[in-house]
Design a protein around this nucleic acid. Structure first.
Lengths: 247, 247
DNA sequence: GCATTTTTTGACTAAGCGCCAATAATTGAC
DNA sequence: GTCAATTATTGGCGCTTAGTCAAAAAATGC
């Protein structure tokens, strides 16, 4: 029995080795560029062995996405515990989104890869659920801040919106802007020189529009975001080092 | 010479025939599922002939995206001429985004297909520029509304934002929410039951946060969006019929 | 040391992209 | 109307890749 677990451990070690090899290929050359032969030859194993770990290419990509989304979730968890009014914690989550895209760009790109029907069609329910769970956890972290703000009477949610639907607006604006920034050819050519600053202003405006206390002008908001960003940076290294070990 | 143009016309007719055949395949089965052999056999031409029209698969996809984005742009143009204060026109563009995603879902999906580095790597500069141009025109339409609102003193833009960067916020929130709605597995499972309504509320809040006159409560905003949506629907049919003929 | 189970291997099939030499069709000069 | 020159079409070929599977190798356990 102790032998069996040693074998299992060996198996798992190799599973993560496959992911370690596959990730940079996926990031550099996309889903097309990632080939099983290439992974196999770089691992110095036969292709069939790779198929003992993952039934198809899509599962590898989904497994990579699970890792990347776990990092995002951990970053969210760390951001949600900054001190101050709920609005500050909400801002910290905006900072986390910025930070993730800018400093974990590879993981951000992996997340993009799975927004593709064909990957979901060919992968296992089980691994899909890991993604959904992680997404749900991220949502839960932010929604908890909203609920806390309501409890503290610093915010009242517009009628007809659930706390999660309120979060959805911030999710959409951050996610949308980051996708556009990274995939739209030549934003500056159509007059968008500093998309990141623009989204900060919009988030601030949205928070103020919701009358989420304390109200701030964009300049003040921006100052606070800078501080939150630095705080996040200092927290980040310890987070990276335990990347796959903590919940 | 008249013979030559007849030939050219024949050539162009077949080019659009290829796109007509390729589009439903791309939509139903994605970039992977679209194969040159399949297009050729469905056209009852040899594969080589398809390659006389398009140097590779990526160019076909980009050509399809040009058509879809032209439809979006035309919808934007039609929406931008509704009567009333600039804020109403801005709202009409939000309605156009909703409308496009809901009633031209195929075109929305085609737009998504090209957010993929490998397609841009393998396609011609020339066709890429058609996409960029269309994107720039869409931006121009909306930015003009913003500029008009400033001129009418119904809006003052936050310092540090260009009119285009202001538009970018609305672009991001609409685009982001639509991508999430269409590609995120089970939004309702994480508490988002009506993403479309949520985004309407957020857009209203954002407009109010910018103090864009006339200020509206979400309920009133929603009523106006409904009316704009109906108006758009009535305009849409004539637009569809002349889809590729007008600028 | 040997039989049984498990794992690994890499040749193989099927499918698809892109190429190109051979074939067919069209053109236009006379 | 004929025929040489040009242009367009064809489909088979080389190459790559996903995924399979029977045979070989390795590990296990008695």
């Amino acid at each position: 029995m102790v032998e069996l677990t040693r074998k299992q451990r060996e198996m798992e070690r190799r599973t993560s080795e496959i992911l370690r090899v596959a990730r940079p290929i996926l990031i550099a050359e996309g889903f097309q560029g990632l080939s099983m032969d290439r992974v196999a030859s770089q691992m110095e194993y036969a292709k069939g062995t790779i198929y003992n770990h993952f039934p198809n290419k899509e599962e590898i990509v989904l497994a990579l996405a699970v890792e990347s989304m776990a990092l995002r979730r951990n970053l969210f968890k760390q951001s949600a515990i900054v001190i101050g009014p709920a609005r500050f914690r909400m801002m910290a989550l905006g900072a986390a989104c910025e930070f993730f895209t800018q400093h974990c760009t590879d993981d951000f790109l992996v997340e993009q890869c799975i927004r593709n029907q064909s990957i979901w069609d060919k992968s296992s329910e089980q691994r899909q659920n890991l993604i959904r769970q992680c997404e749900g956890e991220c949502m839960g972290i932010v929604a908890a801040i909203v609920r806390d703000a309501v409890a503290r009477q610093e915010l009242s949610i517009p009628v007809s919106l659930t706390p999660e639907e309120l979060v959805f607006g911030f999710w959409a604006i951050n996610y949308g802007s980051q996708i556009l920034t990274y995939s739209s050819p030549s934003l500056p050519a159509i007059g968008i020189n500093d998309p990141c600053n623009a989204i900060r202003v919009h988030c601030c405006t949205l928070l103020n529009g919701l009358a989420w206390q304390p109200i701030m002008m964009p300049a003040e908001y921006n100052e606070n975001m800078k501080k939150l960003n630095e705080l996040l940076q200092s927290k980040f290294w310890s987070l990276k080092s335990q990347q796959h070990s903590f919940n």
